[in-house]
Protein backbone atom coordinates (compact mmCIF):
# COMPACT_ATOMS: atom_id res chain seq x y z
CA UNK A 1 0.00 0.00 0.00
CA UNK A 2 1.35 3.34 -0.96
CA UNK A 3 4.04 1.46 -2.83
CA UNK A 4 4.75 1.38 -6.52
CA UNK A 5 6.82 -0.96 -8.59
CA UNK A 6 7.28 -0.37 -12.29
CA UNK A 7 4.65 -2.07 -14.41
CA UNK A 8 5.76 -4.65 -16.96
CA UNK A 9 5.01 -2.10 -19.66
CA UNK A 10 7.07 0.63 -17.98
CA UNK A 11 9.98 -1.78 -17.57
CA UNK A 12 9.98 -2.65 -21.29
CA UNK A 13 9.58 1.01 -22.29
CA UNK A 14 12.56 1.90 -20.09
CA UNK A 15 14.56 -0.83 -21.80
CA UNK A 16 13.51 0.49 -25.23
CA UNK A 17 14.57 4.01 -24.37
CA UNK A 18 17.95 2.69 -23.21
CA UNK A 19 18.31 0.87 -26.53
CA UNK A 20 17.09 3.93 -28.44
CA UNK A 21 19.81 6.06 -26.87
CA UNK A 22 22.35 4.08 -28.90
CA UNK A 23 20.71 5.15 -32.19
CA UNK A 24 23.05 8.10 -32.63
CA UNK A 25 26.04 5.82 -33.02
CA UNK A 26 24.46 3.60 -35.68
CA UNK A 27 24.48 3.47 -39.43
CA UNK A 28 21.24 4.42 -41.15
CA UNK A 29 20.59 0.90 -42.48
CA UNK A 30 21.14 -0.59 -39.02
CA UNK A 31 18.78 1.91 -37.44
CA UNK A 32 15.80 0.51 -39.31
CA UNK A 33 16.65 -2.99 -38.10
CA UNK A 34 16.90 -1.70 -34.54
CA UNK A 35 13.49 -0.06 -34.79
CA UNK A 36 12.00 -3.30 -36.11
CA UNK A 37 13.51 -5.15 -33.18
CA UNK A 38 12.01 -2.69 -30.73
CA UNK A 39 8.54 -3.20 -32.20
CA UNK A 40 9.06 -6.97 -32.09
CA UNK A 41 10.35 -6.76 -28.52
CA UNK A 42 7.37 -4.79 -27.32
CA UNK A 43 4.85 -6.95 -29.13
CA UNK A 44 4.53 -9.84 -26.66
CA UNK A 45 6.02 -8.27 -23.55
CA UNK A 46 2.59 -7.68 -22.01
CA UNK A 47 1.55 -11.30 -22.47
CA UNK A 48 4.88 -12.61 -21.19
CA UNK A 49 4.54 -10.57 -18.02
CA UNK A 50 2.00 -13.16 -16.86
CA UNK A 51 5.04 -15.33 -16.06
CA UNK A 52 7.73 -14.32 -13.62
CA UNK A 53 10.14 -13.17 -16.33
CA UNK A 54 12.37 -10.11 -16.31
CA UNK A 55 11.82 -7.31 -18.80
CA UNK A 56 15.04 -7.97 -20.77
CA UNK A 57 14.23 -11.64 -21.23
CA UNK A 58 10.61 -10.89 -22.17
CA UNK A 59 11.90 -8.47 -24.78
CA UNK A 60 14.20 -11.09 -26.30
CA UNK A 61 11.58 -13.88 -26.23
CA UNK A 62 9.11 -11.53 -27.90
CA UNK A 63 11.61 -10.84 -30.72
CA UNK A 64 12.27 -14.55 -31.17
CA UNK A 65 8.53 -15.29 -31.34
CA UNK A 66 8.02 -12.72 -34.06
CA UNK A 67 11.05 -13.97 -36.05
CA UNK A 68 9.80 -17.56 -35.87
CA UNK A 69 6.35 -16.42 -37.02
CA UNK A 70 7.97 -14.59 -39.92
CA UNK A 71 9.99 -17.66 -40.91
CA UNK A 72 6.90 -19.88 -40.66
CA UNK A 73 4.94 -17.61 -42.94
CA UNK A 74 7.71 -17.59 -45.51
Amino acid sequence: MGRSTTTSRQAVEALCSRIASSKESMRKEDLQVLETLMIMGRKHSGELSAGDIEAELRFVISILMEIIKLLDRR
Binding site: M1, T7, S8, S49
Partner: peptide, 22 residues
Protein backbone atom coordinates in the same frame (compact mmCIF):
# COMPACT_ATOMS: atom_id res chain seq x y z
CA UNK B 1 -2.76 -3.41 9.86
CA UNK B 2 0.17 -2.69 7.61
CA UNK B 3 1.19 -4.79 4.66
CA UNK B 4 3.23 -7.83 5.58
CA UNK B 5 6.84 -7.72 4.47
CA UNK B 6 7.59 -9.22 1.05
CA UNK B 7 10.75 -9.85 -0.91
CA UNK B 8 11.28 -7.60 -3.88
CA UNK B 9 10.82 -10.65 -6.16
CA UNK B 10 7.43 -11.42 -4.59
CA UNK B 11 6.47 -7.78 -4.87
CA UNK B 12 7.18 -7.74 -8.61
CA UNK B 13 5.28 -10.99 -9.13
CA UNK B 14 2.20 -10.02 -7.15
CA UNK B 15 1.96 -6.30 -7.86
CA UNK B 16 0.48 -6.45 -11.34
CA UNK B 17 -2.57 -4.90 -12.95
CA UNK B 18 -4.87 -5.93 -15.77
CA UNK B 19 -3.83 -8.07 -18.71
CA UNK B 20 -3.14 -6.42 -22.07
CA UNK B 21 -2.83 -8.17 -25.40
CA UNK B 22 -1.17 -5.89 -27.92
Amino acid sequence: DHEKEKTIETLFVTDKGGFVLQ
